[in-house]
Design a protein around this nucleic acid. Structure first.
Length: 271
DNA sequence: AAAAGCCCCTGGATGC
DNA sequence: TGCATCCAGGGGCTTT
């Protein structure tokens, strides 16, 4: 579910309220993608200093150590003073002096992992190969161009791989390619310099806009207050198979790339 | 090195 | 409270 905008919206929705909280208890439910990697008892008494984001990971900085949280395909976090009964898909609770952070994740592709710090091999394994952050100053044109040049795979799949630029998932890859007029099947290495730059700009614009709109809620995403996102209403191609392109009226097409659906306008997006 | 497939898991929608 | 099939926001691992 969650791509960069949904993760960032989640972060913004509880970071200030959990900052400074003392951990009273950690509860682990059914197995997630990876084990916590520490006895939950060891977290008790530590404080949550801040919540950062790297790609689609949330990083909860503790005084001594950090928790890496990934939402997988179906995960969402809530942060409330008085949580409900533990539900069928509530698989992690961080009970703090300022509220309970709860991970609900039906498919359990998500994870909460403890690491000593970002340099800890446990963290490096997850974060070490991540590409550039698309929002902010680090999204370098030259590095982006160089990264495209060395990949012969279809541009859509290069974006999804996350080792060149992070945070672009299945929705926003299709959307960014629409806005830059690029066919998703085009080999990354074949993109001209101006088209690459247009794509870089479109990635930034689409992701930033999606954050403003609270992310996309397709089925079960909501931020830590339980509020849904609205960007899906603005999708130009994602999920619009057979519907007319909002720009030219041509029927939107869906294809499969690497076991994922890709949507594009055959008229607006050139090979 | 890079690319392509497979797989983890649950649930909702659709078709018969 | 029918049953089979397909699909879903991710990404690590294995094989070419």
């Amino acid at each position: 579910m969650p791509e960069l905008p949904e993760v960032e919206v989640t972060r913004l929705s509880f970071a200030d309220r959990i900052a400074g909280a003392r951990i009273l208890e950690a509860r682990v439910g059914k197995p997630l993608r990876w084990p916590l990697g520490a006895d939950p008892m060891r977290l008790v008494g530590r404080h949550v200093i801040a919540v950062r984001r790297r790609g689609k990971y949330l990083l909860l900085d503790l005084d001594h150590g950090l928790l890496l949280v990934h939402l997988g395909m179906s995960g969402s976090l809530s942060f409330v003073l008085q949580p409900r009964q533990v539900g069928k898909h509530d698989h992690f609770d961080l009970i703090t002096s300022q509220g309970v952070l709860r991970l609900n994740d039906p498919r359990r592709f998500g994870a909460v992992v403890f690491a000593q710090g970002e340099a800890d091999p446990v963290a490096q394994k997850l974060l070490g190969n991540l590409g550039m952050e698309p929002l902010g100053a680090g999204f370098d044109p030259l590095l982006f161009r160089a990264g495209l040049a060395r990949r012969r795979a279809p541009i859509k799949q290069v974006l999804l791989a996350g080792d060149l630029v992070v945070g672009v998932g299945n929705i926003y890859a299709s959307e960014a390619l629409f806005w830059s007029g690029i066919r998703p099947t085009t080999a990354a290495s074949k993109l001209s310099r101006p088209r690459g730059e247009r794509l870089r700009g479109a990635i930034r614009d689409v992701l930033a806009r999606a954050v403003e709109r609270g992310g996309s809620t397709l089925r079960d995403f909501s931020n830590a207050h339980g509020e849904e996102g609205h960007f899906q209403m603005e999708a130009m191609v994602y999920g619009r198979t057979g519907q007319p392109c909002k720009v030219c009226g041509t029927s939107i097409r869906m294809i499969r790339q690497g076991q994922r659906s890709t949507f594009f306008c055959p008229a607006c997006q050139k090979p």
